[in-house]
Amino acid sequence: MEPFRLAARDIACRRGDRLLFARLSLALEAGQALQVSGANGIGKSSLIRILAGLARPFDGTVERAGTIGLLDERPALDNDQPLGKALSFWTALDREAAPLEQLGIASLLDVPVRYLSTGQRKRAALARLIGQQADIWLLDEPLNGLDVDAVKLCEELVAQHCAGGGIAVIASHQRFDLPGMSTLSLAEYAL
């Protein structure tokens, strides 16, 4: 199996005509996790999108070895479908069932996605992410809307993912407890 890797060299990010950050480099090997912290608007989400390959960096390069899983504020689940059907669309693409019991959403499968609370949506999005079985997890504010138990669960899931050789990047201004995780303060690269 090819070792997973995520590296960025000297990347800069521009939003509109404003340079958010520059000369940012990072390198993550299999099993490593990184928390990106910083104030609102400093460019955490932009960095995640650049790392995911969904946005082009203004400068610099990103190397990825491994499949990418993205969790952001949009769960990508059909609002008017029951949760079970909305998730099964992704299960059919990913060919892997999500651990619904563990995430506490097994009883919500008949409920249309638009009736779910913010936290329940986040749990459902986590289920989608786990089902994807991606090698590199990019999590944009994964703890938003989650209650205390779910925060713990989310931290455990990331720990399991990294223990299994996966890479995780967590962009959050909240405290994320994960042993052995390195941190990157985006403010140091801001302009």
Binding site: L70, R74, A76, W90, D94
Partner: peptide, 14 residues
């Protein structure tokens, strides 16, 4: 596009 489906498809190589 707004709900992130296209991003998720792109990450899966679709």
């Amino acid at each position: 596009v707004h709900e992130g489906f296209f991003d998720q498809w792109a990450l899966r190589g679709i």
